[in-house]
Each structure stands twice: as structure tokens, then as C-alpha cells.
Design a protein around this nucleic acid. Structure first.
Length: 423
DNA sequence: TCTGGGGTCCTCCCACTA
DNA sequence: TCTGTAGTGGGAGGACCC
């Protein structure tokens, strides 16, 4: 059995998680939704739930559930496609508020973050006082609620915030929880052991099933197994991680600025696409979007990855490395289309996606770009990149629909990307 | 009921090279 | 020169997270 880690109760991690974030923001925008089951997500036939209010959760509706099933469970719920730009704005306000307390804030999603508060105690008090203060500020300044967990490491802090979530209705009929939960090192093991093994990071449906076959369903069961046993079943990295986590050990630090390793876009079609020319056109659109986001992030990559999901839900990926950094959507599209040439698509494609990896190098500075515009003959590649930069500027000023390619113009509203999941 | 979108990390396999 | 081996990097795919 694994030994618990040496205790360093002076170092604590805070995990903050907004409660039903997307749905709550929708209720803020439209107060008539308050108290109703609200479901945010893809509303089409292939959509899934991104966020559900606690009233909707009472019907068994959960994130990642197909919208069709959510409608079946609660036909009277209010279904909303979602407004990602609004959630991003509120999220910016949230993170600004968090960085008032500590600069070491690690964003996990729009609505979730880890905080290293070791440098904040002198000004803001104990971790519990910091967490309580943050919760009050989120309520006062954003009119939203959140749950906060405090623990010796990320694992414990995350489980603690989950324990702080709203679960029961209060006297007014509103869903309420403990709000802030701190797990003292002395009670950590009992707290941890009571969880199903699925609560551990890195344990999804597959690993859960494989563990179940080993007779493991709780963290307590898992902690009985020896490290070599887990390594033999789950490989070196995963096996050792499971062994450590079962003992409450989690060496992951809170990292404030984690650079992106890839940028991509994918799209699921409402009806499977069997036409290669149409798929190539869609790849060009996605590649343009990827290039635009790379430029906005000030980074470039040289590896293009194509992802195809077929009608039977099987999928494949193909990737290729260029001999230079990819600066335009057209270049990315060329490589993606070349990869698509090696794929049999006549059976029907459900989803297609393109991403650029191997990011790191910075794009030209503004001054360098001005020089480029001043050059007499920039060459075809530069000219294409300049054109796309100009398009970025037009979209930034007049909105995303202000300029379109001819191919895209005809089917702008055919399908829309679904929102990012929020739990 | 029938499964989105944007990511990260890990493992395995294979080709290449020293 | 040939062969075996270990290291390395690219590509493919699986699993997971939010």
C-alpha cells in the first residue's frame, strides 16, 4: 500500500469552479429564466449539452449528454445555443478578480482555475479567508456563484471544490452547497478514499472499466494495489500516476502561463458529407480560422494535423510536417487537403478538423508587418499572408461576418460550432 | 439517447542514424 | 563492409479533461 506524502500544510492550493457557469450567465442576461431548467449547448440533432442549471440537473440532465436525450428528460426546459463571446467576457472579469489576490493563477477553462496563494496570506489571511473573500467578490461583482476547494495539492483542492458544490435546495427553494471546503491534511486520506476511482484525474470511462475488472471501484481499493501491478496494467506513466494519486500525492504545480501547444478547429456536420470537393472547401474555411487564431496568439507552427470522423463514428488522424513555419490559412489548407487525398471519404464524413502543432515561434512584429506592406513585390506567399492579416483587421473592427470567402458566403448558417463543454 | 469542440499527454510503431 | 543495437523523431491513435 502506498504511503501518504509528507505533509506540507503551509503550502495550499485553491481551486475555484463557477457553478453552472454558461447557464448562470444566460440567467443573468435574461432574469425571467431564474428558477427554470436552463440547458446551454448544441440545439441541433447532433448537439450535446454544454451546461445545465441546477434546476435542469434535477431532471438528470448533465454536461456532454446529447441534447436529444436532454429534451426527452425535460421537454419544458429552456434550450439555448449559447453565447460564447459573452462567457469569454465574463471569464475575463473573473480572472482579473482572481489575479487581484495572486499572480499565480492557472486557467483550466473559462470557469475554472487553480490558484497558488502562498504569497497572499500576509495581505488576505488564511487560505480559507482568501477563498471566502473570493466567493463574496464573485457574488458581488459578477452576480454569479462559485465553489472553492482548498487542499494540500491540486488533486485534493479539486475534490474539495466538488464537495462544496450546490446539492440541496434551501428554504427558498434555491440550490445551495457549502461554498468553501478546506480539507485538512489530517482528514485527507479518509476524504480521498471515500471517492470513486473515476474522481481521480486521468481516470475516464476506459480506465474505470479496466480497474473495475481488477476489483477496484474506489480510491480505497486502488490504494491497496502495488505500483508494479498498476504499471503492468496501465503502462509506466499512467500506472505510476494512479499509484501516487491513490495515496493523495500530486506533484503538479500551479503554473500561471502555460503556452498553447496546438491550435485547431473542427466541425461536425448536421448531415454526413460524402463529397470531396465540399470537404476541401470546408478545410479551407477551417484552415483560415486556425491561421487567424495563430496570428492573434502571435505564434506559428509547422505541423498540420487532419482529423476525420466517419459516419460510423470511427475516426483517424493524419499529420505532416512542413519545412517552414506556416504563415497563412492557404498554406495550412494546402497541406490539410493533401492529407485528405489519402483518405477514403465516399462512405460519408461526420466531422472534419484541422490543427497546427509544434507552436512556439513568434509571428512578425507590427513594425515588421508595416515593412512588408511597404515592399514593392512581397511575393505570392507574403501577399496571401498580408491579405489574411487585412481580413483579421476588418473582422476585428466590423465583426466576424464583415468579410467572407466566396465559398463560405453561400452557407454561413448551415452549421455552427457547438460551445465548449463546461461542467 | 447516441454521442461537440478544443485541447493535452502518453504509448506504440517505424524509419533513420550513429 | 555488414550486422546488431540503441537512441531519436515523426506519425498514428487512444484516453482523458473541461
Amino acid at each position: 500500500m502506498a504511503e501518504p506524502a509528507s505533509e506540507r500544510s503551509d503550502v495550499e492550493v485553491v481551486h475555484l469552479d463557477m457553478d453552472a457557469f454558461f447557464a448562470s450567465v444566460e440567467v443573468l442576461s435574461d432574469p425571467t429564466l431564474a428558477g427554470k431548467p436552463v440547458v446551454v449547448g448544441g440545439v441541433g440533432p447532433r448537439g450535446v449539452v454544454a451546461s445545465a442549471s441546477y434546476e435542469a440537473r434535477a431532471f438528470g440532465i448533465r454536461a456532454a449528454m446529447p441534447t436529444v436525450e436532454a429534451r426527452h428528460r425535460c421537454p419544458d426546459a429552456v434550450f439555448i445555443q449559447g453565447h460564447h463571446d459573452v462567457y469569454a467576457e465574463v471569464s475575463e472579469q473573473l480572472f482579473s478578480l482572481l489575479r487581484d489576490v495572486t499572480p499565480i493563477v492557472e486557467p483550466i477553462a473559462l470557469d475554472e482555475a487553480f490558484l497558488d496563494v502562498h504569497g497572499a496570506h500576509r495581505i488576505f489571511g488564511s487560505s480559507f479567508e482568501i477563498a471566502t473573500g473570493l466567493r463574496a467578490r464573485v457574488a458581488d461583482e459578477l452576480s454569479l456563484s462559485c465553489s472553492v476547494g482548498i487542499g494540500r495539492n491540486k488533486l485534493i483542492a479539486k475534490l474539495a471544490s466538488e464537495a462544496a458544490k450546490p446539492r440541496t435546495r434551501d428554504a427558498d427553494g434555491h440550490f445551495a452547497g457549502r461554498g468553501v471546503v478546506r480539507i485538512d491534511p489530517s482528514e485527507e486520506i479518509e476524504f480521498l478514499f471515500a471517492h470513486p476511482v473515476r474522481a481521480l484525474p486521468g481516470v475516464g470511462p476506459r480506465t474505470e472499466e479496466r480497474l473495475r475488472r481488477l476489483g477496484v471501484s474506489t480510491v480505497r481499493d486502488l490504494a491497496v494495489l502495488e505500483e508494479p501491478t498498476l504499471v503492468s496494467h496501465f503502462g509506466n506513466a499512467h500506472g505510476r500516476a494512479l499509484f501516487s494519486l491513490a495515496a493523495g500525492n500530486d506533484a503538479r504545480r500551479v503554473i500561471a502561463d502555460r503556452p498553447a501547444r496546438s491550435i485547431g478547429q473542427e466541425r461536425t456536420f448536421s448531415v454526413d458529407d460524402h463529397n470531396r470537393a465540399s470537404l476541401e472547401s470546408r478545410l479551407r474555411e477551417l484552415s483560415g480560422g486556425v491561421a487567424e487564431r495563430c496570428r492573434a496568439a502571435g505564434t506559428l507552427g509547422r505541423t498540420v494535423q487532419l482529423k476525420v470522423r466517419f459516419g460510423d463514428f470511427s475516426s483517424l488522424t493524419r499529420q505532416r510536417q512542413a519545412d517552414h513555419l506556416l504563415e497563412s490559412g492557404a498554406e495550412i489548407a494546402e497541406m490539410a487537403i493533401a492529407l485528405l487525398d489519402e483518405v477514403e471519404v465516399e462512405g460519408g464524413v461526420r466531422l472534419i478538423g484541422v490543427s497546427v502543432t509544434g507552436l512556439g515561434e513568434q509571428v512578425a512584429t507590427e513594425a515588421e508587418q508595416l515593412d512588408l506592406f511597404a515592399s514593392a513585390d512581397p511575393g505570392p506567399e507574403r501577399a496571401r499572408e498580408e491579405l489574411e492579416i487585412a481580413q483579421d483587421a476588418i473582422r476585428a473592427r466590423f465583426g466576424r461576418g464583415a468579410i467572407e470567402t466566396a465559398a463560405r458566403f453561400g452557407r454561413r448558417d448551415e452549421e455552427r460550432p457547438g460551445p465548449i463543454l463546461e461542467h
